[in-house]
Amino acid sequence: MAILTAAFELTRDEGYRNLTIEGIAARAGVGKQTVYRWWPTKADVLLEALATKAQLRVSVADRGAYRDELDEFLRDSFTLLAIPGVTPALRSLMAESQFDPQFALRFRDGFLDKRRAALTEIVARARARGDAPEQMSDDLIADLVFGTIWCRILATDRALDETDLAVLRDLVDPAHIPADRRL
Rank of each mutant, 00 (worst) to 15 (best):
L56R: 15
R116G: 02
R17Y: 00
K114Y: 02
F73K: 09
V172K: 03
V58P: 09
R108Y: 12
L10S: 05
D13K: 13
T87H: 11
E69D: 14
A82L: 08
A175M: 03
L47H: 05
L105A: 14
W150G: 01
A117C: 11
A124Y: 01
D13Y: 08
S92G: 15
D161A: 09
Q33C: 04
A118V: 13
V172H: 04
T87G: 07
R63A: 13
V30W: 07
E9Q: 15
A104H: 10
R152W: 05
R158H: 13
E96T: 10
T5S: 07
T79C: 02
I24N: 03
A95I: 12
D180P: 00
C151G: 12
P88E: 05
L19Q: 01
R129D: 10
A61T: 15
F78K: 07
L81R: 12
D161C: 01
D76A: 08
P178I: 02
F103S: 01
W150Y: 14
A124F: 06
I122P: 06
R169P: 00
R17W: 01
L10N: 05
L183T: 10
A6E: 11
E134L: 07
A155E: 13
D109Q: 15
L93S: 03
I122S: 06
D109F: 05
K32E: 15
P174E: 08
V86Q: 08
A159V: 04
E9T: 14
S92T: 08
E9P: 02
I24P: 01
L154T: 13
D131W: 02
F107V: 11
L160T: 08
L144G: 08
P133K: 03
F146S: 02
K53P: 00
L140W: 11
D109E: 14
R182Q: 10
D71Q: 08
F8S: 05
R115N: 10
A155I: 02
I21K: 06
A54D: 03
A26I: 06
A95H: 09
V60F: 06
S92K: 01
Q33T: 15
T163S: 10
R12A: 03
L10F: 02
A26K: 13
V123R: 05
P178G: 04
C151K: 11
T148K: 06
Y16Q: 03
V123A: 07
L56G: 11
P101T: 07
T156N: 04
T156G: 05
T5G: 02
N18D: 12
V58L: 11
A26D: 13
A51L: 08
